[in-house]
Design a protein around this nucleic acid. Structure first.
Lengths: 125, 125
DNA sequence: AGCGGTTTTGACAATCGTTTTCATCTAGCC
DNA sequence: GGCTAGATGAAAACGATTGTCAAAACCGCT
C-alpha cells in the first residue's frame, strides 16, 4: 500500500483523536485541520486499515461504524465513552474463557465474540 | 398499544422463526406465509416491541439490525449462528462482574455492555 | 528531467437499510 | 352503527456507505 499524503493524513487524524470516531467526524476534523481529503478516500482508507488490523471497528447502537487506532494489534475489548469517544483497551481472560466454554457447551464452532462496555467517562460526567 | 392483525402477525412470525431475523427477512417470511404486512409496519412494530423490551436487537457486522423474541426479559447475552440465526440465550455472572469491575476501575459511570458470541451451530456446520 | 503504466483520488451517482410523510383505514369505545 | 385516536402502507426522503470513472499522483526506468 502506497504511502500517499491522504493515507498519512487519515492515520494522523486518528492518532490525534485518540478515540473512536465515525468516518465523517474524522473527515470533518481533517478538513478543519487543513488536511482536506475526500470523504470517499477516508472511507476507503479506514477500511483498508481495518482489513490490515491496524484499526478497530465498532458499531454504535444506531449502526454507524466507528474507528479507532489501537495501541495493540492483539485481541482486546473496549470501554468507550458514549459522549466523547474516549476509550480504554481492556483484555480479560475471564471473558475469553467464558466465550470458549459457552461455545463448546452448545456445540458451536468457529466462534468469535464481541464484548464492549459503553459508559460516560470521568471527564464527561 | 392496539392489538391489530399486523402486530399479531409480526409477533407470530418472530415466534415461528425462533431465531434472529432482519426486518426484511421477517417481512418476506410473512408474505410467503400469506400474512402480508407492509414493510413499514414491520419496522415500526419491531421497534415498538424492542422499546417495550419484548424483543432483543443486535447488529450484524455490517450494521443491519436483527431481532429476536427472547424467552426471558431479563438481561442476557446470545450465542448466535452466523448462518441460520439460531441462538441460545446465555447469562453469565462472570461477564457481569467483569463489566462492573472494569467500569469502576476506570471511573466510567452509567456503563452498559454488549457481549455476544457468533459462530456456526451444530446443524449448520 | 521526461515517459508510460499502474495506482489512487474525489466528485458524483447509486445502493440499501431505515424513517418520514400523509392520505386512508380500523379497532375499540359510545 | 358511528366516532375518533391511533394504525397502516405506498411512496418519498434520509443518511451512511459503496461504486463509477475521468483526472491526477506516483513509481521505476531511460
Amino acid at each position: 500500500m502506497k504511502a500517499t499524503r491522504q493515507r498519512v493524513a487519515v492515520r494522523e487524524a486518528l492518532d490525534r483523536a485518540g478515540a473512536f470516531r465515525t468516518a465523517q467526524a474524522l473527515h470533518d476534523e481533517m478538513k478543519t485541520a487543513g488536511e482536506a481529503v475526500g470523504l470517499t478516500t477516508v472511507y476507503r482508507t479506514l477500511q483498508a486499515l481495518a482489513d490490515a488490523g491496524e484499526v478497530d471497528v465498532l458499531r454504535t447502537a444506531d449502526g454507524e461504524a466507528i474507528y479507532r487506532r489501537c495501541a495493540t494489534g492483539d485481541h482486546h475489548h473496549h470501554l468507550v465513552c458514549r459522549s466523547c469517544g474516549a476509550s480504554v483497551e481492556v483484555s480479560s481472560d475471564e471473558v475469553e474463557r467464558w466465550a470458549a466454554a459457552t461455545a463448546e457447551l452448545h456445540g458451536f464452532s468457529d466462534v468469535e465474540h464481541t464484548a464492549e462496555l459503553y459508559g460516560t467517562c470521568r471527564g464527561c460526567s
